[in-house]
């Protein structure tokens, strides 16, 4: 994991754990983790990408791909990290909207983790996501 990614996750963990971050701060932290995952995938850094993912999402990916997360996540055709156009946080959940993607995250003791990425909207139905947990 790069120093930048580690710092990003630590900052995110502090905000989530203390619960004292404002909604904007929590939304920014979620956006950082979301773009961090897509940036890592673009840089072919599977380990870094998996560090930003929720346990269930990693387990689902490894089970469906039949190989370790760090390899499997690079095969998922996730879009490049575009600009963040919006970010919403409600309780333990966050949604980060980027120009090319929509990412869903959840709060863990270690900070925000991506539960679904590569998501495209469907009318009146949940997003269809390339990468998602259980």
């Amino acid at each position: 994991m790069s120093i930048r990614s580690a710092a990003m996750l630590v900052a995110s963990a502090l905000l989530v754990l203390t619960g004292c971050g404002s909604v904007d701060e929590r939304a920014d932290a979620a956006a950082s983790v979301a773009t961090g995952l897509l940036t890592a995938v673009q840089a072919q850094d599977g380990a870094d990408a998996c560090a930003a993912m929720a346990p269930d999402t990693i387990a689902e990916l490894e089970e469906s791909a039949g190989k370790p997360c760090a390899e499997a996540v690079l095969d998922e055709d996730l879009p490049a990290p575009g600009a963040v156009t919006g970010s919403d946080v409600y309780g333990q959940w966050a949604q980060v909207r980027l120009t090319e993607d929509t990412v869903f995250l959840a709060a863990f003791p270690g900070g925000w983790r991506v539960v679904a990425a590569g998501c495209t909207p469907r009318a009146q139905r949940p997003y269809n996501c390339l990468l998602q947990g259980g």
Binding site: Q92, Q95, C119, P126
Partner: peptide
């Protein structure tokens, strides 16, 4: 909206 996000839907 918390439930919406948990269900991968827009707030």
């Amino acid at each position: 909206n918390e439930e919406q996000l948990a269900d991968r839907q827009d707030p």
